[in-house]
């Protein structure tokens, strides 16, 4: 009987507080690599307190799949309490869904531990202010539905790894091809094609990281480029080796994937050689 009495007492209180606090949740292109949310304004939770009461609150957050199954829950017993006073306060992902106190469910936890990414698909993020002692709701739950994609950098196609090109042909044109960024994104990526000469005493990666590229061109969307080297390969007595790679950039010309391996969004480079033409006469 006491329980019902308490509930009857709490209900008008909740409505009253609700009226005094308004919240809004904004998601800005969440990445599948969930730790990237922590470094920018991927999640913005705005709280506007209208009254003059200062109250400690917790931010409750849940990540759900498209069908509503909970896949990650914030451990409220370890969550940081915030003192809300009159005015507007903005919270970000590190406040809303700190990963160190978020419990992921079975298969999601396993894949997150391996890849640091959530599987591609549709998700829901629900956020709500709750009482810091009994976790009773203070505001209505805000839910946003969003899609996740886990882009895969292009793979180089031709010239293939270790290929030897005929000098005479290569002097006129060399064709470069690579696979597109996967999956196709609404925003067309930029591909920066770079070709570096590997000097005779250099390691291939030494040249890539140390030399000025002979070709450095940024292309929007296209996955083939015909390069006219405008060089003489047959006359120079120094054998020619080149290393090439693709850097995938977003619309702001910044690396598309910043937390994977090299952080530069550069695809695994290929080495190719300019050989003596098979047409070389004996004794030359």
């Amino acid at each position: 009987m006491k329980k019902y009495f308490s509930l009857l007492f709490l209900l008008p209180c909740l409505q009253n507080v609700n009226a005094q606090i308004t919240t809004s949740l904004v998601l800005n292109q969440p990445s599948a690599t969930i730790t990237e949310w922590m470094n920018n304004a991927t999640v913005t939770y705005v709280v506007n307190v209208l009254d003059t009461v200062t109250r400690p609150v917790l931010i409750k957050a849940e990540l759900k799949s498209a069908d509503g199954a909970v896949i990650a829950t914030k451990d409220l017993s370890k969550a940081q309490a915030f003192n809300l006073a009159r005015g507007v306060r903005v919270f970000f992902a590190k406040d809303v869904l700190p990963l160190e106190i978020t419990q992921f469910s079975g298969s999601y936890k396993a894949i997150l531990m391996k890849t640091g990414k959530l599987p591609a698909g549709t998700y829901q993020l629900s956020v709500q202010l709750v009482n810091f002692q009994n976790f009773a709701p203070i505001t209505a739950e805000q839910t946003k539905i969003f899609n996740l994609v886990a882009p895969q950098l292009p793979y180089l196609i031709v010239p293939v790894q270790g290929a030897t090109l005929q000098a005479r042909k290569a002097e006129t044109a060399i064709i470069f091809r690579w696979t597109p960024l996967l999956p196709k994104t609404a925003e067309m990526p930029f591909y920066r094609l770079q070709v570096f000469e590997v000097l005779s005493y250099q390691q291939p990666l030494q040249a890539l990281r140390g030399n000025q590229p002979l070709l450095d061109i940024t292309l929007k969307g296209q996955t083939q480029y015909n390069w006219r080297p405008q060089m003489s390969f047959t006359v120079d007595s120094i054998p020619k080796r080149f290393i090439w790679t693709i850097q995938t950039l977003n619309g702001n010309q910044q690396p598309f994937i910043q937390t994977a391996s090299n952080g530069e969004s550069r695809s695994e480079p290929f080495l190719f050689f300019i050989g003596k033409d098979p047409i070389v006469a004996p004794g030359r």
Partner: peptide, 29 residues
């Protein structure tokens, strides 16, 4: 660890001590 600025994460069980302390951005594969 993709981002060393992220907090340690004992819950994810992705440490390999004494060589590396797992963070929320640590993956093992």
């Amino acid at each position: 660890t993709r981002d060393g600025l992220q907090p340690l994460s004992p819950k994810l069980n992705n440490s390999f001590k004494p060589f590396i302390d797992g963070r929320t951005s640590t993956g093992k594969d």
